[in-house]
Design a protein around this nucleic acid. Structure first.
Length: 533
RNA sequence: GUCCCUAUCGUCUAGAGGCCUAGGACACCGGGUUUUCAUCCCGGCAACGGGGGUUCGAAUCCCCCUGGGGAUGCCA
């Protein structure tokens, strides 16, 4: 059967970096296996699901190039089917009504199958014994067995498990005598009778467990006696996530479920649900979580964890996609910057790590810079133009001048925020780095050189990069300065700061007239800060 | 509290008993190129959490501890 995976977000907030990483891994796996990548919107939480969140989700997915196959399924529209499945389980005695709270309808519970031995995903571990606190009576009913274990510190701690987990349970007393034999009372208990057993010190039974092979984590298992029957239909008759999720996975013929680590505990129950519903059990792969730069799980407070924010901060989709892929996965060799095609080709779930990965903005920025550096000029221009206003660059972004500046600065742009530093090309309004001004202009010869350069400027006709640089050299020579000594002072005059593109191009781009004014302005500024000091 | 998962440089990772005096990348620090800056090149700093085993040999296997994460809902 060909691979079918799904991404099933619930649109209750903006898509988060961890969610989209799950989508990416599903997508990568599907494309690698030449299978299908389906999208299911789990909007059953009517209170918190919003259209806005759904729109944002689509926007993020298409931005990242996560194309999906087939029709989108909206889970809320399938509620009748979920309820129908619940009724079927009830009719087959695979579910039962629990206790109703005051004035409410009873919720429907999924029963961990009593005949679990017949299920391939369940295996017998062997005899087991649990020490229990004798002061706490053991309660036995169709809903399960409840008792109190003794914690490491010796305190009685409440515990309970489903009936199926204790099929041949014997409650043993202090003298080793059997206080209660479940097998002997099986019919009565299943029939609804409740038993309370006092003074038990030990539970003896055959332990069985649900197990499966996780494609990332390896073999995982959970004892039946640690599982509880789970509500699948609420008192208000709405289906619960577990039911809806499993039903829809059946409906969509999902073959591989790739999701976050936080779902491993649910998996055992889901496996049983698949089985009881009469569907084949899919393969599972649980992805490690992504933690923030403090090493903590992302929470609502980590505002910058929303995918859309990365876009608006100027991260390229390719860079973010590439970076996220590297969080918890590597191709097994030294490649890091990879094309989508390369990632699809090398992607193996088996190579996904199993421990949480910490998000590193530095590395993302570096990768982003690499992607920016190789953008086609036209693309870079369009991208940069989109951020000019936001970063107060007073330029007509369709102008020739803007294009020249952008291309000159492309190789030193790692994030959109760097565009803020282009302002001096377009406006005389910029701040000086005073520390640098003091350092660079403290020398009389330098200030003289600047004056000299200014006058020389008036005499030149051509002021292209090469000529500008030539003029600096000849000025230095004329006033007796070593070569290069005028570079930084002129850069300060031009931009107020000490770093930028090459000096000739920078001056030429600003132009003769403006440079003349800016040299005067720098000199005046220097005199002012010296006077103040 | 209980159950489960997990643990290599600050960070992302390579490593599946000898190829490891542990490799790459980011960050950081030097040096070179660029008469500035960035790119680029060269170099440096820096890790197997601790303790027990198993083995001729352990980052790799087992156990314990510690740290981190998850789960313990009529949330998803």
């Amino acid at each position: 059967m060909s691979v079918r995976v799904r991404f099933a977000p619930s649109p209750t907030g903006k898509v988060h970096i961890g969610n989209i990483r799950t989508a990416i891994f599903n997508w990568l796996f599907a494309r690698h296996e030449k299978g299908e990548f389906l999208l299911r919107v789990e909007d059953t939480d009517r209170e918190r699901s919003t259209q806005e969140a759904i729109d944002a989700l689509f926007a993020c997915m298409s931005w990242l190039g996560l194309d999906y196959d087939g029709e989108i399924i909206y889970q809320a529209s399938r509620t009748p089917a979920h309820l129908e499945a619940a009724q079927k389980l009830l009719a087959e005695n695979k579910a039962y009504y629990g206790k109703a709270a005051d004035g409410e309808k009873a919720p429907l519970l999924f029963r961990i199958p009593l005949n679990a031995d017949d299920i391939p995903a369940v295996r017998t571990v062997g005899p087991a014994e649990i020490e229990i606190a004798p002061e706490q009576p053991v309660q036995i009913s169709a809903a399960g067995v409840s008792f109190a274990i003794i914690s490491r510190k010796g305190n009685p701690t409440p515990a309970e498990g489903c009936l199926a987990g204790f099929k041949d349970l014997k409650v043993l007393g202090n003298d080793g005598s059997c206080q209660f034999d479940l097998a002997a009372n099986w019919g009565a208990v299943v029939g609804g009778q409740e038993f309370t057993v006092e003074n038990g010190v030990r539970l003896a039974f055959t332990r069985r467990e649900v197990f499966y092979q996780d494609m990332i984590k390896g073999e995982l298992a959970k004892p039946l006696d640690s599982m509880k029957d789970q509500v699948i239909v609420r008192s208000d008759s709405t289906p619960i996530f577990h039911l809806a999720n499993v039903c829809d996975d059946c409906y969509q013929n999902i073959t591989h479920i790739i999701r976050g680590d936080d779902h491993v505990e649910n998996t055992y129950r889901h496996i049983l649900l698949f089985h009881q519903l009469g569907y084949p059990i899919p393969q599972y792969a649980h992805l490690p979580m992504i933690v923030n730069q403090q090493g903590k799980p992302y929470s609502k407070r980590d505002g910058d964890a929303f995918v859309g924010d990365f876009r608006s901060k100027g991260y390229l989709a390719e860079a973010l996609f590439n970076y996220l892929t590297l969080l918890g996965w590597s191709p097994g060799d030294d490649r890091e910057k990879m094309t989508k095609a390369e990632m699809v080709e090398s992607f193996r779930l088996e190579r996904v790590k199993s421990a949480p990965a910490q998000f590193d903005l530095n590395k993302l920025q570096n990768l982003n810079g690499m992607y920016i550096a190789e953008m086609a000029s036209a693309d870079f221009l369009a991208w940069a133009a989109g951020f000019a206003a936001e970063y107060q660059v007073p330029a007509d972004t369709s102008s020739r001048q803007f294009a020249d500046v952008a291309l000159l600065m492309q190789s030193r742009t790692r994030q959109a925020e760097n565009i803020r530093e282009w302002g001096y090309f377009f406006s005389d309004e910029f701040e000086y780095n005073d520390k640098a001004v003091k350092k660079q202009l403290g020398n009389d010869a330098i200030r003289f050189g600047l004056e000299h350069f200014k006058s020389a400027l008036a005499t030149v006709l051509e002021f292209a990069p090469a000529e500008a640089e030539q003029l600096i050299r000849s000025t230095e020579k004329a006033v007796g300065l070593d070569e290069g000594k005028l570079n930084q002072p002129l850069r300060l005059a031009a931009s107020g700061v000490t770093s930028g593109a090459d000096i000739g191009s920078t001056l030429a781009m600003i132009g003769k007239e403006k440079m003349t004014g800016r040299i005067d302005r720098l000199l005046a500024h220097f005199n002012r800060i010296i006077a103040e000091a």
